[in-house]
Each structure stands twice: as structure tokens, then as C-alpha cells.
Design a protein around this nucleic acid. Structure first.
Lengths: 203, 203
DNA sequence: ACCTGAACACCGTTCAAGT
DNA sequence: ACCTGAACACCGTTCAAGT
């Protein structure tokens, strides 16, 4: 074939195919990607910088799925809650993407801009300047951990044979199941964290 | 050679070698592991159930590094804080292990027992039984996210070229650097989360 | 500029053969 | 029971050759 008149490949098509593979299998390989796109493996390398480049495409993509308009809410803790929910919701739609992107350095322009806005909001709310980053990091850690929880199997704690954990077992039975379980833990944790942040402002 | 009189391999030696590789390179492969142990790749498979089995060995190992004696502290929130610090400290000693184990299902007998104790402590402290799991999950999510933060490069937010984030940049400069940065965020988040949990008990 | 086919070093896993 | 050597299917990446 060699160079066709209309390109067979572009970064958007690569991103979409990679996302499908991750959604379906939890991971992706370059050959599987090429197969799905009806193209040779080597062709993919003309559009991205290796497999790592495809992971970066996915990282950018998920950043662009987030709705950051809640950042304009008042007061500051409503903005923060809205941001956190939007962040987690993007991953909730593609839970298996989380493990792939779980290294925490944030580079995505959209997400950086969102954190810039959050930082400003926190400073205006009266948080000491030297604490702003710690507050944001703590929130980010909680969101990321909660996103990972979405990718986990239905049960978070699996009591192995020979281990006696009657309390845990009965509380697991009393707790919400399925999607509700992760949602409930996220909301309870988010409210608690924000409540704690509010207390910091007064202290 | 074939079967030697004293076995060349056992699960402990495999675990130790895998841990060294992860500490040094951030990952491990079975051939590299075998090389380090002076053994053929195939030999490893007589002692573990594939590469996944080695990951399980590491998961068990890290669980056994945690000191759960703080769980006996009074009151309940001191126990919870001690547990969280012990959990994170184990990963702090081997930060690159976190990504490898970041899927959240907990199976390790030691860690399950610790959560059993936590669950009991929370119920005795007065938390509604249907909320116990959500409280534990929220804490676990925060700890896991914070552990991932330990494996991240020094900078959590990397402002890319062309993006303007003056606030974030200046707050990053005002915040603690290096190890202190992650420690500070963890402690601030932990205190906030526990503060929020305390408020739940009163409401 | 973009796609192909072939090549390379590497990985996870299995298995018959040896003690 | 435990280790080896060889084999297999697979992966990430490169590169010369074609349009």
C-alpha cells in the first residue's frame, strides 16, 4: 500500500482505539491497537512517541472530559467539592483507565488550569499561602485513591480462608453494595475532608 | 545441574530479589529476577504461580512490614491515625512498590485483621453500622492516594509550556519541598479527614 | 509525510529431560 | 521435588523500502 491519499491514522483515532482496548481488557498493546485500526504495528509509531506517547494521549483525553465549571461556585468548599466530583466522574466512566494513569504527576493543561483556579480560590478563602499546596495535594490524593477504588472488584476487602473477621464481614453486609458502595465512601470522605479543611480556616 | 542438594530457590529469596528490582528499577521481570538469583528463568516457576504470584508475595510482604500496635490506642481517632501512618510508612520505605500493588482489593491476612480491629473500634465509638465500611474505605482511599504520591516525582504539578499558572507556581514555591511536601500533605489530610469523621459522630 | 514488511531484543510461560 | 535448556507466542521498537 504505502502512503495512501487519505491518512489511515491520526492521534484521535489512536486515542479512541486505545481507550476501547483499556475499557474492554484493562490494558492495551501496540499490536492489538494496530489490529483494531486495520494497520501494521509499525505505522502507529509514525504518529506517537512510542507506547508511552499513547498513555500521554489518554492522560490528556481524560483531562478534557472533566467539567471544571463547578470551580466558579461559591463558597470555596462548594467549588472544591464540584471539582472533586467532576474529576472522579471522568474516571468513573472509564474505571480501568485509572491504574494506567495512576502515577500522580499532573501535566494536562486543563487539569493544571483547574488546580490554578483552586489554588486562587483557597488563598482568597483565607488559607495560609504555605498550606495551599498541602490542601490541594491531600484532596488530589483522596480523589486518586477513590478513582482507583472504582477500578477495584466489587469487594474491597476479601477475607481469606483461615482469617476470622466477623465484624468486618457483618459491616460489609450492612453497607451499600455495587456502585453505591464506592459512591457512598467517596461522598462521605469528601464531606469529611472538606469539613476538616473548614476547621483549619477557623483554627 | 538439575536438582541440587540444598535448594537454590525459595519464596523468601524470590520476594527479596523482586523487592530489590522494584526498588531499583520501579518494576521487575521474571528473567531479570532469575539472573539476579543466578538461576534459569524457568526455575522460578517451580516456586510461584507465574509473575502474578510474585506480585502476591510482595503484597503479603508489605502487609507484614506494617506495625499495627497503634490500633490499641485510645480514643478511636488516635488508633485510626496510628494505623494510617503505619500503613503509609511501609510504602514510604519502598515507594516504587505502590504502583505495582495499587489495585485496591485487600487480601493480606495482617491487613484484613487490622481492618477488622478498626471496624470494631469504629462501631464501639458509635458510628452507625451501615457507615463503618464507608469510613474505612474513605480512609483507605486517602492512604493509597498518599502512598502513590510517595512514588511520584518531586513535583506533583508540572506547569507545561504555554500554560499560565502564576498562583500555583508561587504557592509551590512557598510550600515545603522534597519528602516534607508529601509528609505535610498526608498529615494535613489525615487530620482533616479525622476531624470530619469526628463531626459525623456528633451530627 | 505515511504505511509496510522484516528484523531485533525482550518477555511470560510451558514442558520434557535430568537428578 | 527442583533445576535446566529449548521452545512458543507475544511485545515494544527500529529501519529500509515503497509511494
Amino acid at each position: 500500500m504505502a502512503r495512501p491519499h487519505t491518512a489511515l491514522l491520526d492521534r484521535d483515532r489512536i486515542t479512541a482505539a486505545a481507550l476501547e482496548l483499556v475499557d474492554q481488557t484493562g490494558d492495551f498493546t501496540v499490536p492489538a491497537l494496530a489490529r483494531r485500526l486495520g494497520v501494521q504495528t509499525a505505522s502507529v509509531y509514525h504518529h506517537v512517541e512510542g507506547r508511552a506517547g499513547i498513555v500521554e494521549l489518554l492522560r490528556d483525553w481524560i483531562g478534557r472530559q472533566m467539567d471544571f465549571s463547578p470551580l466558579e461556585l461559591q463558597p470555596w468548599d462548594a467549588a472544591m467539592a464540584g471539582f472533586a466530583r467532576s474529576y472522579r466522574a471522568a474516571f468513573a466512566a472509564h474505571p480501568r483507565l485509572v491504574t494506567l494513569l495512576a502515577t500522580s504527576t499532573v501535566r494536562s493543561p486543563a487539569v493544571i488550569t483547574a488546580y490554578e483556579r483552586m489554588a486562587t480560590v483557597l488563598a482568597e478563602a483565607g488559607f495560609p499561602h504555605e498550606d495551599v499546596i498541602a490542601v490541594l495535594t491531600a484532596l488530589e490524593n483522596f480523589i486518586l485513591g477513590s478513582a482507583l477504588d472504582l477500578a477495584a472488584p466489587a469487594v474491597m476487602w476479601e477475607v481469606p480462608d483461615g482469617v476470622d473477621a466477623p465484624g468486618l464481614t457483618s459491616f460489609l453486609a450492612a453497607a451499600p453494595q455495587g456502585t453505591d458502595r464506592a459512591d457512598r465512601a467517596f461522598e462521605l470522605g469528601l464531606q469529611s475532608l472538606l469539613g476538616g479543611f473548614r476547621a483549619l480556616l477557623k483554627g
